[in-house]
Amino acid sequence: MAVDSPAAVAREDRIADLVYAGVAALAAGAAALESEFSPVVAVWLLVGLVPWVLVVLRREPPLPAFAVLALAPVLAVTLIWGIGVALFVGTAAASRVAARAQGLWLVAAVTIVAVALPFLPPLAGHEAQLGSLYFAFGNLFGVLVGVLLRRTSELTRRLRAADARLLEASAREERHRLARDVHDLVAHSLTVVVLHIGGARRLLRSDPTTTEAALGDAERVCRESLDGIRGVVGLLRDDGQAADPAVDLADLVSTYRDAGRPAELILHGDADGLPLLTRGTLHRVVQEALANASRYAPPGSPVTVDVAVTDSGVTARIENVLSGTAPSPRGAGGFGLIGLREQVAAVGGELTSGPAGANWTVLCRLPVATGSLPSASRTLR
């Protein structure tokens, strides 16, 4: 829902003030006509219009002063000359004060004066009229209208503030998502590149052909990473939908295996039948676990990725030999396993990590929609 801007709310308040001022001017004109344009009455009516002129000219006095300046001349005209039409000036003044006042005492005082005004002429010797009761109810209704206008204005401002907070939260969440995307992409790619370069350095003199192949793979991964980063950065500029992410677990594991890290994927069920959101989350978890294993596990030690897909959910277990240094829960910038736990929790899953015997284990459970998933089992080495 779009909420009015501050300028729009101020414009609506301005329009309401002009309407109130127009009603007061018309009532004063009718009162002058009823007095047969008595100069004294005209002067009192002009005095009663002074605060309204200030409102129109944006030189509005404080609200209590406005109430006194607008209602006092009406009181004099009705008491001295018994001109009932002038009460409409008081109705407009009371309604506007109720629409602008923040304190209950001012609204209560103006309400009492507005309701009592129609009954004052008989106290000054003027003939009592049944219309006094109607005027009293009319003034009370005018105050009620002012109170409702004030409540509407306050609700609009609150909705505008809530809308601004929601927009800020949405922008913050989008920044976090992009940061996670960049982290996952860069951490994975640089880890693979480091593995390739490390292997090339060790084989530089003894096996130039393998060294060249490793450096070629490192170059390829760097180019792919650069293309991926361009795609993520493009999300900041493009309004269109981004392309579906690459979520092939076999390709992911083979990338690390080609880089010299013994990696094995054991897949029970068909991961391709999972919803895209579940596949993407699973891919991120395996990617982060492989990157951590490559950084912290002893060189050359194997990593096992065991994924089981059933009708009710997906379970992924990534294990590697535990070294003296445990994987950090945070990656660079704080978007490692902690960020993954947030992502997994957002889709209703659970992610745990820690030592289990001689291995470091990352265990992820993700729910899937109820449905039949094809059954299959395969092992990739």
Rank of each mutant, 00 (worst) to 15 (best):
G331F: 01
D244F: 08
T209S: 15
A28N: 11
Y20N: 11
V47L: 15
I266H: 12
A162I: 09
I15W: 10
A108N: 11
A108H: 10
R59A: 15
T310S: 15
A356I: 08
F37K: 01
L190I: 02
V253D: 06
T278Y: 08
V286Y: 04
L159C: 12
S353D: 11
L204S: 05
E173V: 11
Y134C: 05
A332V: 03
V40D: 14
L75R: 02
V193A: 02
A332H: 01
P51H: 04
R14D: 07
V113P: 00
A242R: 13
D4G: 10
R381L: 09
S375M: 08
A124N: 09
R341L: 00
A246K: 10
R180K: 13
V113W: 02
S372E: 11
T255M: 14
T78I: 02
P118K: 03
S153L: 15
L148S: 14
R14V: 01
V115D: 07
G82W: 01
Y296C: 14
A214G: 09
A246S: 07
P327H: 09
L133M: 04
E288I: 07
L167G: 10
A259L: 14
L57H: 05
L46F: 14
A293Q: 05
A250V: 13
G348L: 08
A67Y: 00
A200D: 08
V303D: 01
L290Q: 06
L75Y: 09
A114N: 02
P355C: 06
G29P: 11
S35M: 06
G198Q: 03
E319R: 14
H283C: 08
R381C: 07
L185S: 10
G313T: 03
M1R: 08
G131Y: 13
I229K: 02
L159N: 07
S38W: 05
G280C: 09
A263R: 00
A28C: 12
L33K: 06
A25C: 03
D163F: 02
V233I: 06
W44F: 15
V147L: 15
V107Q: 00
W81C: 07
R295L: 12
A7D: 13
E12P: 04
A169C: 01
H176L: 09
D270I: 06
A16P: 00
V41I: 11
R230C: 05
A93V: 07
R177Y: 13
V314S: 06
A346M: 03
V41S: 08
Q287I: 04
S294L: 01
V85T: 14
F141V: 12
E168L: 13
G371N: 10
A30T: 13
V55C: 05
G48C: 01
L215Q: 10
E127I: 13
N139I: 01
S353A: 15
L252T: 10
T156C: 04
V145P: 06
T209A: 11
V110E: 07
F119I: 03
Y20Q: 09
G103E: 04
L155M: 10
A162N: 14
R157H: 10
E127F: 08
L204K: 01
D17Y: 01
T278L: 13
L363K: 08
R59K: 13
E288V: 12
A259V: 09
G82L: 03
V68G: 10
G103H: 00
R237P: 00
R150H: 12
L265E: 00
L87Y: 06
L18V: 07
A93N: 08
R11D: 09
T281Q: 04
V40Q: 12
R365P: 00
L373S: 00
T255G: 14
R237I: 15
S225A: 15
S132T: 07
